[in-house]
Amino acid sequence: MNNDEAKFILGVYRPDGRDAADPAFAESLAQAQHDPVLGAWLRREQALDEAFSAKLAEFPVPDLRKQILAGAHASRRRRAWGRGAVWLAAAAAAAVLIGTAVRLGRGSSGPGPEELAAFARHDLAADASEHLGAVPGLADLQRHLADPSTRLGAGLNLDLAALRQHGCRVIKVSGRDVYELCFVRDGQFHLYVASVADFEAARPGAAPELTSQGALTSATWADARYVYVAVTDAGPDALRRVL
């Protein structure tokens, strides 16, 4: 590879290092390290690219947020009636599951974690407008959940009373309080949390149990204090990555 070819390739190398792991740049970058002329060119080029990027980022952006959200709200409302068949199928299947779980639960003193999981899948499939998404009072926690280094399966240090106080959505399942937190990583995730004392047969410390139903996948696990159900439509692999 001569220097002109290396310059051609390095011309699309972002100066912030985000392309550093891309093997397409490896040979050109190595050449720039050993060739002082090419190295000096790359430094100048990157300084110039940095300068242009910084200037572009300075350009003021009008506040379109409210207009965008308002416009989308109207279209979402219309779409809600015709939500995809996959969601309807999932909702129907989840409703059957819940019915089964409730019937099986009769005679015992409380619901089990599988009932919570069935509820969570049903809750996600049935009406997305009920979910709160970003909650200002829970922003730090939601950021923590969205952080790729956070592994939910390791358990979370939560205070349910504080969650309620800060605006967390709370749903009654068989008379028990269940708290819902939403976050985004490789997809959208909904984490349902309840006191482990409220859901019998939860086994603290056991590996998360994955269940797929239509487009939705849930994982159920428990620690000493809480039982958790995470639900997503991003697929089992995406769900495993957050556990």
Binding site: A128, G133, A134
Partner: peptide, 8 residues
Amino acid sequence: MPDEVFPQ
């Protein structure tokens, strides 16, 4: 795909 992620 649910809608609450839209503002984000």
